[in-house]
Write a protein that binds this DNA or RNA. Structure first.
Length: 300
DNA sequence: AGGTTGACCTGGACGC
DNA sequence: TGCGTCCAGGTCAACC
């Protein structure tokens, strides 16, 4: 579900509520799909760690973890859930020297959400992870389609996928990404190895604002068109972040609130409706297996 | 090598 | 009401 603006909205909510908090225990569901790292490694990295910061990298949420050993009084604390899991025997070996450098990386996939909840509140269906915090709150990962992924990264340099952060890229950097690419510009915008964070909604919205048809080959765009596209991508993403993201079906932020940018969509999800600029009917076509929406009049 | 397609999952909307 | 079909904000592996 979430693209960069939705992930950023979630990140901001999380940062406000959990930064500085300490993870007391972790529960992981039975189905293994959402786990990209072994369950014992995730549990070992998270339990007793302090959340030093919550960052966003593309569509990923990254929790910076640091050791809380010295400041935590562990007297009388309950048995962590990990001990109830069959695989807990492995936990020890993940408690290494690198503790304090770990990152907990969450990708929400299509339908994932990360919500702050009170322990007594009902546990939603498709909840795959519950992180209990010292403050008494819980951080819950819910994902019906199970396309989301949880992992722990301990490498020096941390989690670093390829791709440019679209809000940081300058126009020349941006233009360079598409040089020599024969793929449709729509597909190139979705390629996370080039630009990280743009998904189907914001690719379509950006192309409309830039006046470029989604099927145009990336390599054939003129310098002027690339400059317009660069501006459009940044504008759309910034506006969407201000609106709290787009709630197309069930997206909510960490506080459970929807976003409002769906009311500003000019083409996405508007097949057959009138273009807000020229009145022509918005078209929907399929490009590389993804639906693409555009105005045949405004986009060339 | 680089681009395109299907598979991965579940649930909601729609047509009959 | 119930069943079948199609569609979905993302990413991979497997193909050409």
């Amino acid at each position: 579900m979430p693209e960069l603006p939705e992930v950023e909205s979630i990140r901001r909510g999380l940062a406000r509520r959990v930064r500085g908090d300490v993870i007391e225990s972790v529960w992981l569901g039975e189905k293994p799909e959402p786990l990209k790292s072994p369950a014992p490694e995730i549990v070992a990295a998270l339990e007793q760690a302090r959340i030093a910061a919550v960052r966003r990298v593309g569509k990923h949420i990254v929790f910076e973890l640091e050791s809380s050993q010295r400041s935590t009084s562990s007297q009388g604390k309950q048995v962590p859930d990990s001990q109830r899991r069959a695989r807990n025997d492995d936990s020890q070996k993940w408690n290494g020297d690198s503790q304090g450098q770990a990152q907990w990386v969450v990708h929400l996939g299509m339908t994932g959400s990360l919500v702050i909840a009170q322990p007594e509140s009902e546990i939603a269906r498709h909840t795959h992870a519950i992180v209990r915090l010292q403050s008494g709150r819980e951080l819950r990962f819910v994902d019906p389609r199970r396309f989301g992924r949880l992992s722990v990264v301990r490498e020096r340099g941390g989690f670093a996928p390829g791709g440019q952060e679209p809000l940081n890229a300058g126009v020349r950097q941006f233009a360079r990404l598409f040089r020599g690419r024969k793929t449709p510009i729509k597909s190139a915008l979705l390629n996370q190895k080039l630009l990280r964070g743009v998904g189907n909604i914001y690719a379509d919205e950006s192309l409309h604002r830039a006046g470029i048809r989604p099927r145009r080959r990336a390599s054939r765009l003129t310098a002027e068109e690339l400059a317009r596209l660069h501006r459009a991508v940044q504008q759309v993403l910034r506006q969407a972040i201000r609106a709290g993201g787009s709630s197309v079906s069930d997206y909510v932020n960490a506080e459970g609130e929807p976003g409002f940018f769906q009311f500003e969509h000019r083409v996405y999800g508007r097949e057959g409706e009138a273009c807000r600029k020229c009145g022509s009917a918005i078209r929907r076509v399929v490009i590389a297996g993804r639906s693409a929406h555009y105005c045949p009049e405004c986009q060339k």
